[in-house]
Every structure is written in structure tokens, then in C-alpha cells.
Amino acid sequence: MDWNQFLFVIFPYMALTLFVVVTVYRAIFRPFTISSLSSQLLERKQLFWGSISFHNGILIILLGHLLALLFPQSLVLWNSVPFRLYLLEVTGLVLALWSFVGVLILIVRRISVSNIRAVTQPTDMGVLLLLMLSVLSGIITATGYRFGSTWFTGVFSPYLWSILTFAPRPELVAPLPWTIQFHAFNFFILLAIFPFTRLIHIITYPLSYLFRPWQIVIWVREQRKQNEGRS
């Protein structure tokens, strides 16, 4: 077994297993522990600049990665016109820089505000640092190895599909420079720690709010009847 095998086959599968199994377990059996753990009440000025820029930036970029994974052909087609390629690359870079500034503010806030330090777990710091490294290595990749939005479709789309379809092809990522390899591996680390940290709040994004009635009224008695019917 070589390093490439471990980093891009064995570890990804470990990470995915943890991600799925522990997330499901925690969501079903430990729901009280799942929270976005907001600290806005204790400090709001720095959070305003940090949280909004980080969240929005990273959200759009992640969505971009996902689209590149799902529709590689369309992306290549889009990029065939230089103007559209530049537009995509510049947008991505700006968003990345935006979220990088955001995550830096969040890290500084965690360290410098004493009320925030009081509610900071080691894992909170770990998550922020890993995210910072992830965004940083992404920025280096985008600027140093152009144009990511095109070669991603030839390297990472097939590689990630090979992982997801249980026919791993780690040789696809073997020749890549180490910064890019790190960027990919770091993602699997984040995936592995996802269910053990506050990252898990991502799965609780309340899309159902768009559809539910305004008021929620529960007849405890009727629930009881339903329970009786079930047992």
C-alpha cells in the first residue's frame, strides 16, 4: 500500500463511513446535541463581518464544486468561451477571498473575545483552522494552477465518481501537485470530523420553513392515540 492508496482510497472511505453512520446516529439518537451553537448573543460586531462573508462565500463555492461534479460536460461547454471562463474563475476567486477574510475574522474573534473563548471547544477551533486551510489551499490552486474550473472536470469529477461508485481510481490524483492534493485530502478530513463537531449543523438547514404552516398546534392527546394505535 502506498501513500496515495491510503490518502485517496482508504481514508476517503473511512471518512465517508463516519460521515454517514455517525451523522445518522446523532441526528436520530442525540438530537439535543445538534445546534448551530450561535454565539451572536455574546458578540455581534465581528460576527456580522465574519459569519456573513464566510457562510455566503463558502456556500456558493461548495455549490460550484457540486455542480462541477454533477455536470462536468456542461461546465466544459460553458468554459469554451474565454469570457465566460474568466467570469467564472474571477467570481470563484472573489468568493473564495471573501470567505477567507470571513474565516480569518471568525478565528480572530474566537481567540480575542473573552466571552467567546468561554464558549469555545477545542473542536470549534479545529474546524475553523481546517476550513481556513481548505479555503487557502483552494485559493492557491485557483491562482497557481489555472484554470481549475476546466481541469477539475477531467481529474476530480471522474475521481470523485470513482469513489462514489466503489471503483476507486486514485491514480487520477497521484500526479497532482501537493497543494491540490492537500486541498482534496483536507476535504475528507472535514468529512470525517463532520458528525463529531458543530459542522453537523449544515444538515439542519431548515428548507422546510418555506412550506410549513405559520402556526404549529399539537394535540398531545391525539399523539397519544396514535401511539396506542401503533403499539
Partner: peptide, 29 residues
Amino acid sequence: VAACPSGAIYKRAEDGVVLVNENECKAWR
């Protein structure tokens, strides 16, 4: 109740008490 994105707050129909389901609450505030 209306503002909670998670739908964690509800009113008991039997006696009208409004409660937060702490398992559902995700701290959107």
C-alpha cells in the same frame, strides 16, 4: 412559533402552553 425556521416551537392544543422542542431547536434565534 411562526418565525422558527426549524419548526421547533409549538402550542399545545389541550391547554395552550407554548413550548420549545429542545431537540428540534437549532439555534437560529
